[in-house]
Design a protein around this nucleic acid. Sequence first.
DNA 1: AAAGTATGTCACTATTTGGTGACTACAAAA
DNA 2: TTTTGTAGTCACCAAATAGTGACATACTTT
Lengths: 207, 207
Amino acid sequence: MAPQRDKEQTMQRLIDAVGTIICREGFRNIGVNTVAKEADVDKVLIYRYFGGLDGLLKAYAYQKDFWLNVDKLFGQIDSARLADMNYLRELTKQILHGQLTEMRGNKELQEILIWELVERNNLTNQLAADREEKGAGFTRLLTEKLGIAQEVEPLIAIVIAGVTYLALRSRSDSHFNGVNISSVEGWNRIEEGLNKIVDLYFESLAK
Amino acid sequence: MAPQRDKEQTMQRLIDAVGTIICREGFRNIGVNTVAKEADVDKVLIYRYFGGLDGLLKAYAYQKDFWLNVDKLFGQIDSARLADMNYLRELTKQILHGQLTEMRGNKELQEILIWELVERNNLTNQLAADREEKGAGFTRLLTEKLGIAQEVEPLIAIVIAGVTYLALRSRSDSHFNGVNISSVEGWNRIEEGLNKIVDLYFESLAK
DNA sequence: AAAGTATGTCACTATTTGGTGACTACAAAA
DNA sequence: TTTTGTAGTCACCAAATAGTGACATACTTT
């Protein structure tokens, strides 16, 4: 044990333990006993400091940022060029590229997404709502500029959802629909597919 | 209890109980005790008749067909017209339409898919492998005819994965990326999006 | 130095889990 | 009628679960 009498550190150990367990085994094995054991801390402290497991999970989710990092890209947007179709096209590709790398690389995010799929509670509801708000942001921007929201919104939804599901599948499957989702080459092909869709759509606009 | 001395019926009660629980609460609450209680049968019979919960789940999965119903469409394919691009285009749309309605309507399938995402065991591995084999079938057919497998495979993968994830999300979310995935209208927009992608791609081939 | 507060330890309960052995009740074969 | 096999019941076990109350040990304030 750790009789160090450092509340902050103990709390952090618990929060970190949540992340460790989620990364290693997913969220289904998470519980008061498991987390306490992983953190090498008495489980009663979970109740004292966080009011229970829910509070601890909330604290965990608050510390990490589990929505996609679209904010960074938003900051880089050159507003003056938004009227330029070619710029919009490249911007779209960049956003999708960011989504793909984030979804593929962030194992913790993958587990959270699966958690959101499996069970809904206050926490997962909040996470999902935040994600939806952020995620729809770029689409709104794009549709405003293009002025054809009705058409492009579902397209983006399909593509983002597709990348997400492929990433989740890649946790335990090597292939999806013939595409190798466990290799860099496979994911390069997927990204080429995304770019192809973007190109096709923007070319259809140019006509 | 049910002292009816009918082994077959008792086994079926257990299998049905699995389906009931999965539909109602998903797979996470599934266990020997839960299933036995739902079936109103002693849990020891699960061990006697199925060798344990795994065997019961296997029997359950065997009874239902959890891969997508591409077989039906395959049977309808008019081989003679496969050289016709317009026919291929419509066929692709039909396949996607079938996938969408199946994914959206079959709640049991949704739960199985989530189960495959969450935990892997002999059963879920088998289910996933079957699905991959069947799912990749149409893509193979299409790519053979088009002769550009490298390009079209990832496109289909993205789109199928997208529809799947949207369906899974619709279990607990009302919107995804601004699209209403809890209404028929929203799903019509998604289907229009799918058709749009197909059209764009085939038009690009025609050039 | 004494008192009080807060951190961490331990022991305990009650419930649920997967799993097993011993039993009864029935039905068909001998 | 007796024997034998099997469908179903019941009682139990060990382990793990969430949660609580009592205690000791430290640190801080007075």
